[in-house]
């Protein structure tokens, strides 16, 4: 378990180092995620070395978002002043993004995967 946690933290720490030295505007956790993917892909890290902790972290991911969610209480005054446009924008725009992204992907995927099938016939 210690080695597993160590490997995850190494990826995260490398992410922090990359952000510190390059000033790149990408969160260290996302760089860490990509480093872990690369490490597994190029067989520097073996899957079984981190499988256990990865499953624990991924299974409980929703729960880890609770403290940042509770932080909304600090901005309740700010939000309540203009709650109508904020709420409408948050809900309306999220629905539009969900639909536009999934429709675009679904359509492009279908038209692409149909071509080789018709070729075969």
């Amino acid at each position: 378990m210690i080695r597993q946690m160590f490997l995850i933290l190494v990826c995260l720490a490398l992410g922090e180092i990359v952000v510190y030295f390059t000033g790149i505007k990408i969160p260290s956790s996302i760089i860490g995620m990509l480093l872990l993917t690369a490490g597994l892909h190029f067989k520097i890290i073996k899957l079984k070395w981190i499988q256990g902790i990865a499953d624990f972290l991924l299974d409980n991911m929703v729960f880890f978002f609770i403290p940042p969610g509770i932080a909304v209480m600090c901005y309740l005054d700010l939000i309540s002043k203009e709650w109508m446009p904020i709420l409408a924008s948050v809900i309306g725009s999220t629905v539009l993004v969900l639909i536009s992204t999934s429709f675009t992907h679904q359509v492009l995927r279908k038209t692409r995967s149909k071509k080789p099938n018709t070729d075969k016939k």
Binding site: M5, I8, L9, C11, L12, G15, P27, S28, S29, I30, G32, M33, L34, L35, L36, T37, G39, L40, H41, L47, I50, Q51, I53, A54, L57, L58, N60, M61, F63, F64, F65, I66, P67, P68
Partner: peptide, 18 residues
């Protein structure tokens, strides 16, 4: 103490991504 796990859990997304 809960939030501590947030960044490691995002790093762990590298596993399914791989």
């Amino acid at each position: 103490y809960i939030e501590f796990f947030l960044k490691p859990s995002i790093v762990a997304l590298g596993v399914p991504l791989y």
